[in-house]
Computed example of a mutant assay.
Amino acid sequence: MPLFSIIIPVYNVQNYLSACVKSVVEQPGPRDWECILVDDGSTDQSGAMCDALAAELPGLQVIHRENGGLAAARNTGLKAATGDWLLFLDSDDAMAPGLLAQLRGALAAHPDCDWFIGKHLEWQPDGTLTPHDGLHLVPGPFASSDYAARLKALYTAGHWSVWKYCIRRSFLEQARVRFLPDCVWAEDWPFDLELLLHCDRLYFLDTVFTHYRVGRQGSLLTDAKNLPKRFRGLAAAQRRLARLSANGTADAAAYAAMQDAAADVFWPQARTAAVRDAAIRKACLPYIEQLRPLYPHGTEVRTRRDWRLFQWMMQTFGPRFTLWAASLQRK
């Protein structure tokens, strides 16, 4: 049984896939890992590249599936994983050199921990690597029975990015937490919020896990046409959180913290949806309406006057008028 299972969802990344896989196979140390490439119905040469790479490089296996999105692809990888520990890597990013060697030492030194969190560097278009502003990781263990305190510690250090996590597979299996297939954008954060219900102890490592490529055109993060998909994913996540509250998995205090975290994802996107393109606004509206339970919530929205005004308008006049009015301020 391998020590690590490295799960890499693959979709139309023919220009980046080789560098991603290379960053894994060139990790120093024993070949105590498996790397699972999940081709999510790619329409370029990515699927064929996966097969070619697996034929040449030991430790790689390939799963081809119909396109279902990043969350579904990660779940497919989880189902196939056999390693003691799980790592996630996006196929346009790279594993930091020496990561597995550092993790071997950390896991052996802290056998009572199930969830390790590290850092990342932003991989700029010019090839330079820069720290991410706004995150503050304090190395060492963090234990608390207070869900909100655990959430604050996690998001202060790492925000929602599973490619900075190393998770014990048996713990994840026991928690029975998976990625939400209907969450087609930012699928990390509902996974984080639910898994955190099952883990009172986190361990933060002063270790770079990932070189995260920024500014890739056409991604869900950079293309305004993908805004409706973002809100559809947010609505799916909100429904899941509401079920966790309704069935008692999340108590009132935990659910309140979850709502604030969800709203912190929602409000920047809601403001972004105030675009001049009326067709995009119209496509977003049904999902933004479904997200009304989040309108009173959020921590970041309380820190800026313009955001508070936008929140008040959403609560008072509704999203249709608010997005239209805010769009008039756009150039």
Results as ranks from 00 to 15, higher is better:
A237P: 04
V184L: 08
D223H: 08
A72L: 06
L244C: 13
R201E: 13
L197W: 03
V265F: 07
S5W: 13
W312G: 08
P181L: 03
V25D: 02
A224Q: 14
N226A: 07
D114W: 10
P131V: 03
Q329N: 07
W267E: 02
A73K: 11
R232P: 01
C113M: 13
T156V: 02
I7E: 02
A283D: 09
A19G: 05
V38W: 05
L154E: 05
Q315E: 06
R74V: 10
V13A: 09
G118E: 04
K229N: 05
V24Q: 08
S18Y: 05
W324D: 01
L220Y: 04
F4W: 05
P97S: 00
A71G: 05
Q27N: 10
C50W: 01
D251W: 09
R243F: 05
P111H: 02
A283N: 02
P125K: 06
A52I: 01
V275K: 13
A109G: 03
A246C: 01
S161R: 15
P97D: 01
F310R: 12
G105M: 07
E187S: 15
I167R: 14
F321I: 11
I167S: 07
G215L: 03
G118W: 06
Y255D: 04
P131N: 12
F321Y: 11
H120Q: 13
R276S: 12
L37A: 03
A325Q: 12
A94F: 02
A54P: 05
M95H: 05
L220D: 00
N226V: 03
N67L: 10
E66T: 03
V214E: 05
G248P: 03
K152H: 15
R304F: 13
G59V: 02
P141H: 09
L86W: 04
P111G: 00
L234F: 06
V138A: 15
Q269H: 14
L180S: 12
R213C: 07
F317N: 12
P228K: 03
H132C: 12
D206N: 14
K22L: 11
N15V: 00
L103A: 00
F321H: 09
D277I: 06
Y147L: 07
L180H: 10
A252D: 04
A80E: 11
W307K: 15
L17N: 05
G218R: 00
N12G: 00
A256K: 15
Q259Y: 04
V138D: 10
P139Q: 12
I280N: 04
S327M: 07
Q269I: 03
R232N: 07
P319K: 11
K229R: 14
A48F: 01
A274T: 07
S161M: 14
A143G: 04
D126V: 06
L57P: 01
Y295V: 00
G77H: 10
D44R: 08
E173G: 10
A257N: 12
F191V: 09
Y155T: 06
A237D: 05
T76Q: 08
L135E: 03
L100R: 12
P141E: 13
G98V: 09
A19V: 00
S46Q: 08
V208M: 10
R169P: 07
